[in-house]
Design a protein around this nucleic acid. Structure first.
Length: 203
DNA sequence: CTAAAGATGTCCT
DNA sequence: GGACATCTTTAGA
């Protein structure tokens, strides 16, 4: 029964080579992987169910499209790092950097399915509703205590924040759709989600 | 220096 | 379905 208290992770963090590839491909392959956040004694885990690709060089919707700035510089750096930015005066969004160093790219983590540390997530989110804990980019950063303090964090080190394989891998049915909340590049089908998963932010 | 928009969430009708 | 909270970043004068 109480599987929500047990870790579903056995393996090491995804390696740098996983991230050092085409952003769209990484976005698809991140579905079904497990986001892990270590907060002292507590450990939070969630299955990634929704992502969006933001590629620098040919994607007008990307923060990196017009070249490096202080905010987006981590997108141009080594792959496998967290790119966390602040938006709308109150929200953080979590991305993982992709493509070889020098070439900008990132995948926005839009939603995860809570697995472990649900009690802690409910406190942070100030709600008892499981569905509402992490079904959106700013919701999951609140649930997982991700702020700009983690901007640039190396996701391959297995420290405070990383991504890894679940211990039991199930086949993932991927749905591709248009990205949410953008104007330029709105026609690209670069939003990926696990089909019919109830924790996806929007159908 | 100033202005305007933003890879959103929440509450209201 | 729409208003609005709230502030950083960026672009442009």
């Amino acid at each position: 029964m109480q599987s929500s208290h047990r870790s579903i992770v056995t393996s090491r963090p995804l390696r740098r080579a996983f991230y050092e590839r085409n952003t769209v491909r990484v976005a698809k392959e991140l579905l079904g992987k497990v986001l892990v956040r270590k907060l002292g004694d507590t450990r939070l885990e969630g299955i990634i169910v929704e992502t969006e690709a933001y590629r620098g060089y040919d994607d007008a919707a990307s923060h990196a499209y017009r070249g490096p700035t202080r905010r987006n510089q981590v997108m141009f750096g080594e792959p496998g790092h967290a790119y966390v930015y602040f938006t709308y005066g109150m929200h953080y969004c979590l991305n993982v950097t992709t493509e070889p160093a020098g070439q900008a790219g990132a995948v926005l983590i839009r939603a995860v399915q809570p697995v472990k540390g649900i009690v802690e997530m409910k406190k942070r989110r100030r709600t008892e509703h499981l569905r509402d804990l992490s079904n959106g980019p700013a919701k999951l950063t609140q649930a997982f205590a991700v702020t700009k303090a983690l901007n640039g964090h190396d996701l391959t080190a297995g420290k405070k924040l990383y991504i890894t394989e679940p211990s039991v891998t199930e086949p993932v049915h991927i749905t591709a759709s248009t990205r949410i909340g953008i104007k330029a590049g709105a026609e690209k089908l670069w939003r990926f989600s696990i089909r019919r998963n109830p924790f996806v932010s929007k159908l």
